[in-house]
Design a protein around this nucleic acid. Sequence first.
DNA 1: CGTCATTCGATTGTGCGCAATACAGTTGTG
DNA 2: CACAACTGTATTGCGCACAATCGAATGACG
Lengths: 146, 146
Amino acid sequence: MPDFPQLALDQQLCFPLYAATRAVTKQYAALLTGTGLTYPQYLVMLVLWEAGEPVTVSALGNRLRLDSGTLTPLLKRLELAGRVERRRDAEDERRVLIELTAAGRALREQVADVPLRLASAMDLDRSSVVSLRDELNVLIAHLDDA
Amino acid sequence: MPDFPQLALDQQLCFPLYAATRAVTKQYAALLTGTGLTYPQYLVMLVLWEAGEPVTVSALGNRLRLDSGTLTPLLKRLELAGRVERRRDAEDERRVLIELTAAGRALREQVADVPLRLASAMDLDRSSVVSLRDELNVLIAHLDDA
DNA sequence: CGTCATTCGATTGTGCGCAATACAGTTGTG
DNA sequence: CACAACTGTATTGCGCACAATCGAATGACG
């Protein structure tokens, strides 16, 4: 019976990546209670705040690497909560534009301190965060090619 | 109108982490088609193969940081697929022991090359993988305390 | 021996994440 | 204009992930 050292959970990159993401998401969920946002909803709001103008569903999907099967119901929940409005683009009726409401824009100040609070919970120095972030971006880029 | 540079998607660690995990999971899904395993199911199998003996649901949960709400249905699907058997522990009737079937054990050889194939898809040198893995483990440890 | 807190797992309900599919609207081509 | 190909979004179905809750089994304590 051969052994399979390469299948050891702790030797692989995949599991720490998977576990760390869920741990970070859980921290965000804790900091976002009170805003009514989930973590993926928060990411969508980040894109909308950054854009400063209506954004199509596909643009959101490209930025966040999510497809319409994920975004459509998420955006409907954001609309139901009064954070965004959804309307067809008059220029091209296939497109749906997502626009912040006043309440959606106001939320930005309420979460402005979230990244800082997260960083303190993670307790990593700035250089570790930067190198980790950059290595992850390299990884993503490589997987895109494959 | 104040600006919120700290809310920029690209400056934060959270988004690359989130996106990289989904990219890696997608790669695993591709390599695991044919085995009938999903990525979380593959992780459960890794733990069972490593243990070499029946494992309780809670032990699986501790190792993988997943709760019974996730594991119970996942294990039922693995049982339905003939990979594992579930039975109450005679010593303590509250516990459920998860045991590999012959088919479940046999699967190990079939996926033995998956980590190597993943590593080649990720195209990172060994030292990057190790440092990334270790930094993620540090991150997880810190979030546990918080 | 009762009983009371704890442990273990299952269940329920909500929200992703994604493949596959459907379909309306748009564009290209002759 | 006719019509085929393409685009952008929505829908469906399945499988996680997790909070909250429940109920059975156990163990500690008086």
